[in-house]
Design a protein around this nucleic acid. Sequence first.
DNA 1: GTCTATATTAGGATAGAC
DNA 2: GTCTATCCTAATATAGAC
Lengths: 209, 209
Amino acid sequence: MKTRDRILLTALTLFNEEGEQNVTTVDIANEMDISPGNLYYHFKGKESIIENLYSQYDSGVAQLLKQSEIAQMSLEDHWYFIYVIFEEIYKFRFFYLNQTDILQRYHDISRRFKRLVKYKVKTIETLCQSLIETNALNDSLVESQQLAENISFTLLYWFPYQQLINPGEEYDKIIHKGVYQILSLIVPYAQLEDRTIAQSLLSIYHSRI
Amino acid sequence: MKTRDRILLTALTLFNEEGEQNVTTVDIANEMDISPGNLYYHFKGKESIIENLYSQYDSGVAQLLKQSEIAQMSLEDHWYFIYVIFEEIYKFRFFYLNQTDILQRYHDISRRFKRLVKYKVKTIETLCQSLIETNALNDSLVESQQLAENISFTLLYWFPYQQLINPGEEYDKIIHKGVYQILSLIVPYAQLEDRTIAQSLLSIYHSRI
DNA sequence: GTCTATATTAGGATAGAC
DNA sequence: GTCTATCCTAATATAGAC
């Protein structure tokens, strides 16, 4: 593994564990047993490392969102999609845990992050629409735009919330609870026929919590 | 106004506007036209200022929550209660905007913040229970504990979310939208008779957005 | 209580040898 | 590519005069 990539990986791990602002360039170098000078040979500075990590995250999620537009998805695919989005966020969770700070300090990332959030909301709205069109959701009750915003809101703050409420909880459980949470946002709007399906989905996830 | 209080007020304003970590003790002193040395005469340091501000916030909210336990509240009182909680959070919004960072760095505040959140969830759960007992909400559909957590979740992250999505939005609008958001979490569970009331409430708030 | 001046430290970053 | 040594800056904090 090349030093450049090891720097990115080490930085990501430390940022996720300690919080971005509690990790210095020297910390990263120490953790890898290289000198700070060496680190600066590969990257202009800390900001440059973070921007690289953001690019990884951004293109990963963008690809996922694009796929969901192309593929015709079944109801179960929808849950799987939510699940995979959560996993991608988890990998780069420090962007979410220290969101406000990072967006206050790195303007370029802020711009791109906001763009991605809008793209996410739009995609989720389309998913909700498709659930209405297949009559899984009751059209009269649901404002699909409002529901999509609720789901995005949950995706955005689920990890900070869990860190606050259940610090040290394992990765799997956190994500399962997140999917459950989103499912429970949707259930009230489900048609009577599909409500049974949805509620059995709920109980499957509930058993894993 | 005593210098000590002016320091607290100035610090609060700057923290809310610029973010806690972007404001130094020298910034606070400059803004007030006093010397940094003078500031350190009144407070041991930045941490001490923040702890003082947190105490103000904590006791303010705790008092509100206590009142809600004592008083018998009508349906409209409940909305007013949510509204007032939002206002209190807004006054000290930097604790919410930079939540993870502040809780990572100031352990004493972290402890107290978590305790307050638990108290909040408990109080909101009681409110939901009372809505079920007066048959405003459908008992069979709603897990009052789940609903209470959803409402708390919204209270916790509404301001960071609005800053992300609608930066520069006015204070009134943000809070109205927040109340609307919480209302829309509850409406699906409302009994048919009360649903009309709830939905008219919704449209009142909607008109103010 | 308030000021000026200064010490201390930590983090980010560079220069130059190997 | 990597190291050692060093610089620069910003932020916290203190000492001592007024």
